[in-house]
Write a protein that binds this DNA or RNA. Structure first.
Lengths: 199, 199
DNA sequence: CCATAAATGTAGTGTTCGCTACAGATGTGG
DNA sequence: CCACATCTGTAGCGAACACTACATTTATGG
């Protein structure tokens, strides 16, 4: 049987462009016209490849998290819980103010509240934020076993705390906070882990 | 000269309803149809009273911050910086999970990223978040003068930190985090202030 | 070389958006 | 009681939205 005409655009390169549009304007603020122009394709190609606007968002989110996976491994491989926190928050401060990307974090900027018909977009973003929190929690459980965090430390609470701080930094970055401001927040936040460390 | 027909609806009550719609759906997700229905008026009344959708948002934000002013005074009147932080974050945890309101914080939920034509909405929200941060910073400057925070403490950084944590809690609350989860974050966050207190 | 399968570009579709023209209603000042 | 100013409800405006029908192009399998 015949195989059909091959696609003329690079799906990953197009997704990178779509990711940036969603990142900068949010899910509802991004229009199909903006997306297709940034991706360098026409609407029928977009719909053939990704189904609809929400499918495109999910594909862009997959690529976003895949790109961060290596960095997250680097974070989790720090020797102590305190160092994990420091790498996590300092890296967040830097990436959220990287001029090569829109400010903030796609998983926050993408959309916290949406209109009728897009109610599950916020849940989609929240689910992906939760994955990072899970990784952190497991890392802190390990830190307790290793005697790195004191026995009374609450691994889940510390993971939630880091998740909250990085989301908060995303909010600040999206409204113009510069790298120095975010690093200040990161430095203050890390102090919690020094107090929770086994002495 | 004649004074014209008086308005038949209570502007403040209508603003409370509009506030809730913006809070739940965000600026772009909220439609004029939803707003007018919640407010119990027709579009011409809305436009006569508030100019346009963005004017209505600003009026709703004014009312939001006015309602919180008394609570903020209560927070700032705490005796020590540590107690200010605790009241602030615990109060935030409770109000962001109050079943009488939509989850989260209007100043975060309202819109971090917007489409073309609404670019200044995020700035509008950020400006109002900055006011709270300013109040906290001044309170911590005072705490240093009073010897309540140690001399090396950075009042601006601590205020930014509290602002970031409460924004992060807003993100979590909007995606379903319950009151207990937010209180955990608040409890962990407050520890920073114990370490920064003059002993 | 032909039949088939899939992607492409043009040019729309119907719907919903924010917003308003207009006529009638309801009050105040003289 | 009248002239005027403003609010109210109905109805609908143009524009922008997500999405698609269709003819064409470009590949593969036989």
């Amino acid at each position: 049987m015949a195989m059909g005409r091959p696609r003329e655009f690079d799906a990953d390169a197009a997704l990178d462009q779509a990711m940036e549009v969603f990142w900068r304007h949010g899910y509802e603020g991004a229009t199909i016209a903006q997306l297709t122009e940034a991706m360098g394709i026409n609407p029928p190609s977009l719909y053939a490849a990704f189904g609809n606007k929400e499918g495109l968002l999910k594909a862009a989110l997959d690529r976003y998290t895949a790109k961060r996976a290596a960095w997250m491994e680097e974070v989790l491989s720090a020797p102590t819980a305190r160092d994990v926190a420091e790498r996590m928050l300092m890296g967040t401060a830097d990436s959220q103010t990287d001029p090569d990307n829109p400010p903030g974090c796609l998983l926050v900027q993408g959309g916290l509240a949406c209109g009728t018909g897009s109610e599950n977009v916020p849940f989609e973003l929240a689910a992906r934020r939760a994955l990072t929190e899970d990784q952190l929690r497991e890392r802190f459980v390990r830190a307790k076993k290793e005697g790195d965090l004191k026995p009374s430390a609450d691994a889940a609470a510390l993971a939630r705390y880091l998740s909250a701080v990085s989301a908060g930094m995303g909010v600040m970055a999206s409204s113009g906070a510069d790298r120095e401001a975010l690093r200040q927040v990161a430095n203050v936040s890390v102090k919690v882990f020094e107090e929770q460390s086994a002495k």
